[in-house]
């Protein structure tokens, strides 16, 4: 038996029987893309809602050779991302990184990295409510039947009511998708900006919902289509300006309130992407002048 990193606990915290149970669920999730596989989620040493599903998936997949990146809101340095990264560094002794390109496993809450993912990478999503139909029909017994019969009319009605009321589909995050032409799936509360990144991604996407005890998956190179209507096609969130620090266009931005007189700036939500661009010399409107510029 290998020496555990944290005394008294197994590699990556979970016992082997639990890992096997989760691994079997992951295999079925990959074989049935977008279908939510029930699993006997364990009580983790962090609260439900803090990513216990994602942590269990990562713990069941990760090995000593892996390099782990953890982001929350796109950032490696938010407290919960720091906490989860430290948990795996402590219980599995794995290498961690903030660089998207260097990671073999990326655990995320609410974002998909801006840099395109590559073949062999695994993206693990933390999911609060895995059932895309839950807010339309709270009963599990009912939604299970809807999935079985591929009866998704209720979701179209909901989106259409949005259009009637607001002139737009009023769902901006956790925007429902159809996976491989069959299951309706909740992409987790990522902004709909990220939905197109899921489509035909070279990375394996795994979703863990600990409190709700569900695991689901999108295999690499799988069709992921956001629901829409012919006269109201799916559109991503748009920003008027580029990132104020790195000048990037076409990325997701955080709004930073600078003062109480309406002062605002918009900066990359993906901190690794922003930092990498700045290192490459890209500048935005509000970035500090480059020091020691050779030019």
């Amino acid at each position: 038996m290998n020496a555990p990193t944290l005394t008294g606990y197994n590699f990556a915290y979970l016992d082997e029987q639990t890992k096997r149970m989760i691994r079997r669920a992951i295999l079925k999730a990959i074989a049935i893309p977008g279908y939510q596989v029930p699993f006997a989620s364990r009580e983790m040493p962090m609260p439900y809602g803090w990513g216990t599903g994602g942590v269990q998936v990562t713990a069941s997949v990760i090995g000593p050779q892996d390099v782990l990146k953890v982001i929350d809101q796109g950032s490696d340095d938010t407290t919960n991302a720091v906490s989860i990264r430290a948990f795996f560094a402590r219980t599995a002794g794995v290498a961690t990184t903030t660089a998207t390109a260097d990671a073999t496993i990326i655990q995320t809450r609410h974002r998909i990295p801006e840099a395109p993912l590559t073949d062999g990478q695994i993206l693990v999503y933390q999911v609060p409510i895995p059932e895309p139909l839950r807010f339309l029909e709270p009963r599990e017994t009912e939604t299970r039947t809807m999935h079985a019969l591929e009866e998704y009319g209720l979701m179209h009605v909901k989106l259409y009511e949005d259009i009637a009321r607001h002139g737009h589909i009023a769902t901006t995050y956790a925007y429902p998708v159809r996976v491989a032409g069959r299951y309706l799936m909740d992409p987790s509360p990522t902004p709909k900006f990220d939905n197109p990144k899921m489509h035909m991604s070279p990375a394996l996407q795994l979703f863990g919902a600990g409190r709700e005890k569900r695991i689901y998956a999108v295999p690499p190179y799988t069709r992921v289509v956001s629901l829409d209507f012919e006269d109201h096609p799916f559109e991503v969130n748009r920003f008027d300006k580029p990132c104020a620090l790195c000048g990037a266009h076409g990325v997701y931005l955080d709004e930073v309130v600078l003062d109480d007189r309406g002062g605002r700036m918009f900066v990359c939500s993906d901190t690794d992407h922003c930092g990498t661009r700045q290192e490459q010399g890209h500048r935005g409107d509000l970035s500090t002048p480059r020091e020691g510029s050779a030019a």
Partner: peptide, 10 residues
Amino acid sequence: LPHYVDFQAE
């Protein structure tokens, strides 16, 4: 926990 990414979308 931070939810500012989704809040930004809203």
